[in-house]
Design a protein around this nucleic acid. Structure first.
Length: 525
RNA sequence: GGGCUAUUAGCUAAGUGGUAAAGCAGCCGCCUCUUAAGCGGAAGAGCGUAGGUUCAAAUCCUACAUAGCCCA
């Protein structure tokens, strides 16, 4: 093995560890500092720390403290060093914890007084052995500096964790978008607003669970691994169970199992959880995402509209304190009631096409093409042409929250026929900023009708439609035992959180979005 | 799947064919009110990967990789 080969091999290994050759020097000096700390009797990887306060608490509590004044209260605090400003016998560190940041006022004299008996060089060690990125604990009093910065006037400090890798540029931060997603931990350290988005996301899911819990809904977890993927039109992920020797599919919806629970006698159920769909990645799509599905016996889609409004406005108010929000320069007003309009009416409104007038598919196709719509030839029914017309002319115009009602039966295999409009089902979708945010129907409870619809789906699947559903025989059996009239609702949590956090990409609200693996390494080692 | 754009030091980045700027971080000095601290010094770059054109390529061409945006 020649030397250059060994070197390149070494470089590749470092790359695998996300460490570049050049940063290796920086890293080596920090490892050396950790070693020196050990020799001084300080563990660079401590076991714990007791804080008395968080940064934000101190900032709030001493907001009125005048500049230059000190308060003789003993506090202990911990966090990551984000910036160091070091003088000969004085230093200022900016310490960041989960709540915010506060300055450490580190005076040689004061530190030597309190730590001097054990370690006369405590201040020099602080200067030499700490770096931005280290996690530090500090005890001291409170002082607002002459320049007006609230600070902990440090008496003692403890290294809690020595960081070996440098933080991104303190001024420009981490702007490489790919790196932000790949190394989300670094993104979170240096971009506080990213933490805020995930905090809001947690408030949304907690708020929904609380709202439903208070109204008697119970959350039941249904299987992720299924022998048949149903409940939606989407390609599933396929996996394999070794001892059963069978293929299994990751769920593409929670619908069919939650309905089985309604058959079983639960009257109000929901599940908030992860869904997997084997489709492309975009600013609005991640292959794994989160939905909430809610089923309520003896309710219909009108009841579910009320529930949708209530759920979304409740969590929005909780999270943002207002129902008026700004999303990417658009003003959105979530104050209910939201507009309710049928698909037929809104398509007529936007495109001029009145689908109630068409007697044949050919007639509808001709009119749709006349109106300038594309991809019409693939549609084999009036209902699918109507849906194309909706997607092409209406969808993106629905900026303010709008319920679109009464969908064609062909594209809604699990919804109950409309009680008064032939060919349609009792279904709505909610659109906000042009995006489908919720989907709901009066659930189909007639087992024979359901069988016909699923068999039609299965025929499409057999004909090569990869998104069509198969026949879930066990689900049909459940329906034959009898399911009460039921309203069902699904809400896309990621899209809702995007809206509430003003995030342009779904990747901004998923902590670890799916990315292609980074480019290859040598085949041989 | 298609189009456009990007990829230069750990981070942020300049450089449109002729020896690869700079700031921050790191290293060595000085410094008790800084907060993008300051001043002085010495380092640090396979210019995404692989080919090609050229006396000469970070720069032009072709693939490929990754990402972003738009479209389907």
């Amino acid at each position: 093995m020649n030397q250059s080969f060994e070197k390149s091999l070494y470089n590749w290994r470092l790359r695998l560890a996300n460490i570049n050759v050049m940063s290796e020097e920086l890293r080596a000096t920090r490892i050396e500092k950790a070693e020196q700390l050990k020799q001084l009797g300080m563990n660079p990887y401590a076991y714990g720390w007791k804080s008395t306060h968080h940064a934000a608490e101190l900032q709030a509590k001493f907001a009125e403290l005048p500049s230059g004044e000190e308060v003789e209260i003993e506090v202990a605090i911990a966090g990551r060093i984000m910036a160091r400003r070091v003088f000969g016998k004085l230093a200022f560190f900016t310490l960041q914890d989960e709540t915010g940041s506060i300055q450490l006022y580190l005076e040689k004299k004061r530190i030597q007084e309190h730590m001097g008996s054990e370690d006369a060089e405590a201040f020099e060690h602080l200067k030499q052995l700490t770096d931005a990125g280290d996690i530090l604990g500090a005890k001291g009093t409170i002082k607002r500096t002459e320049k007006g910065e609230l600070s902990v006037y440090v008496q003692e400090y403890t290294m809690l964790t020595k960081s070996l890798l440098p933080l991104p540029d303190k001024w420009h931060g981490l702007t490489d978008v790919a790196k932000r997603y790949r190394q989300r931990y670094v993104d979170l350290i240096v971009n506080p607003e990213v933490r805020d988005a995930f905090r809001k996301r947690a408030l949304v899911t907690a708020g929904m669970r609380r709202y439903l819990d208070q109204r008697g809904f119970i959350e039941i977890e249904t299987p992720v691994l299924n022998s048949e993927a149903g409940g939606a039109d989407a390609r599933p992920f396929v996996t394999y169970h070794n001892t059963l020797e069978m293929e299994l599919y990751l769920r593409i919806a929670t619908e069919l199992h939650l309905k089985r629970l309604i058959v079983g006698g639960f009257e109000k159920v929901f599940e908030l959880g992860r869904i997997f769909r084997n489709e492309g990645i975009s600013t609005r799509h991640n292959p794994e995402f989160t939905s909430i599905e809610v089923y309520q016996a003896y309710a219909d889609y009108s009841d579910m509209m009320d529930l949708t409004e209530a759920l979304i406005t409740t969590v929005t108010q909780e999270v943002l304190g207002s129902l008026k929000i700004t999303y990417q320069d658009q003003e959105i007003d979530l104050t209910p009631p939201w507009r309710r309009v049928t698909m037929h009416d809104v398509v007529k409104e936007k495109s001029g096409l009145d689908f109630t007038q068409f007697a044949t598919v050919e007639e509808a196709k001709a009119a749709a093409k006349q109106a300038g719509l594309h991809d019409i030839d693939k549609c084999e029914s009036i209902g699918r042409i109507l849906n194309e017309a909706f997607e092409q002319t209406v969808e993106e115009t629905l900026i303010q929250p709008t319920f679109i009602l009464d969908y064609p039966v062909e594209i809604s295999p699990l919804a109950k026929p409309h009680r008064s409009k032939p060919g349609l089902v009792e279904r709505f979708e909610l659109f906000i900023v042009g995006r489908e945010t919720a989907n709901s129907f009066s659930e189909l409870t007639d087992p024979l009708d359901q069988r016909d619809r699923l068999e039609a789906q299965a025929a499409r699947k057999a004909a090569g439609d990869l998104e069509a559903q198969g026949v879930d025989e066990d689900f049909l059996t459940a329906l034959e035992y009898g399911m009460p009239p039921t309203g069902g609702l699904g809400i896309g949590i990621d899209r809702l959180v995007m809206l509430l956090t003003n995030s342009p990409s779904i990747r901004d609200v998923i902590a670890f979005p799916l990315l292609k693996p980074e480019k290859g390494e040598p085949e041989e080692t």
